[in-house]
């Protein structure tokens, strides 16, 4: 679906008095990856890392400085209009619906812009109205909608013409928990049931955790991770915690490879690295266990670690 090879984008920034100093910014510095049809992919990175720039190059908004890009078999910067028919895009913080018009007017206009046949439009709209629960505010002007309602409207708008590939830039930003869940459910449904390939950039780790099969992490223009979330956790999860319940309260256990973080009656928290089963065996030898649990580090922590120590991480790309 998407093929990216050694993609680069440089910007020339003029700084200093009279804008004399020329300064080249390598926003995207030679990234390569491929996306298969039907994937649900997360694209992560700190601000200024090059996320938006990559998406813009994939959608045809920006022309790359060098490298190869192919989306749905087309070159985005050359075949912008042809590609536009097959992709949908939604930029969370920007508005693509018509501000003063009722929601359904915006849909109608988009139908004509995309030349969607009326029967297919009817069916699709019916389904979108159902899944996203649009009926209560279909006739309301967009400027009077709440953020959650507007985002749902924008999602529907992006899907009206039945694209095979959907790009989302921070779709859940600013939404409350319920609204976020609705959006996530929608994305999962179109991905699993309709096979729509979805690529979303996000800072929301809940999105990643619940939606993405695969994660791309970019920092300073380079790809520092490309792989699934379980592998990510395993590779950079680092320390995990073994929570054990002993038969009766005891002083902190002394076990090889683990440090006791906390003791609360019969329960102890052991911080460790590496294999949980080995540690469990050693603990079982040292004390009588009633129950145990392994607590995973959450994704937030892992991502924080990746952002904080990119040098340590970038030479071990999980490709």
């Amino acid at each position: 679906m998407i093929e990216v090879e050694d993609l680069r984008k440089e910007f020339v920034v003029r700084r200093g008095r009279l804008r004399r100093e020329r300064h080249v910014v390598h926003a995207v510095n030679g990234i390569s990856f491929g996306v298969e049809r039907g994937e649900l992919l997360g694209y992560l990175g700190p601000n200024g890392a090059g996320k938006s720039t990559t998406i813009k190059m994939l959608t045809g908004i920006l022309v790359p400085s060098s490298g190869r890009v192919s989306v749905a078999g087309l070159e985005p910067s050359r075949k912008r209009i042809e590609l536009a028919r097959r992709i949908g895009a939604m930029f969370g913080q920007r508005i693509q619906l018509w501000w003063d018009l009722p929601l359904h007017d915006s849909f109608e206009l988009l139908r004509h812009i995309y030349r969607v046949p009326s029967d297919r439009y009817r069916d699709r709209l019916a389904r979108l109205r159902d899944v996203l629960d649009l009926d209560p505010f279909l006739a309301t002007p967009v400027r009077q909608l709440s953020l959650g309602q507007r985002i749902r409207g924008e999602l529907a708008a992006a899907m009206l013409h039945g694209p095979e590939l959907l790009f989302l830039d921070e779709p859940t930003i600013g939404l409350d928990v319920v609204a976020k869940q609705r959006v996530r459910d929608f994305l999962i449904e179109i991905n699993r049931e309709d096979g729509v390939t979805v690529m979303l950039t996000t800072h929301d780790l809940g999105d990643i955790e619940r939606l993405c099969d695969r994660l791309l992490v970019i920092d300073h223009g380079s790809l520092i991770w490309d792989g699934g979330i379980p592998e990510l956790k395993e590779r950079y999860g680092g320390e995990r915690t073994l929570v054990i319940d002993l038969e009766e309260p005891a002083p902190p256990l002394e076990v090889d490879g683990a440090v006791v973080d906390r003791v609360d009656g019969p329960r102890q928290w052991l911080r460790f690295r590496g294999s949980a089963s080995e540690l469990t065996a050693r603990v079982a030898q040292a004390a009588r266990l009633v129950d145990l649990q392994v607590a995973e580090p959450d994704i937030e922590e892992i991502v924080r670690r990746i952002y904080a120590r990119p040098a340590e991480v970038s030479d071990t790309r999980g490709v």
């Binding site: 908004i61 028919r85 693509q96």
Partner: peptide, 8 residues
């Protein structure tokens, strides 16, 4: 930008 993603 959004105008560039539409087929017009």
């Amino acid at each position: 930008d959004i105008l560039l993603v539409r087929p017009r």
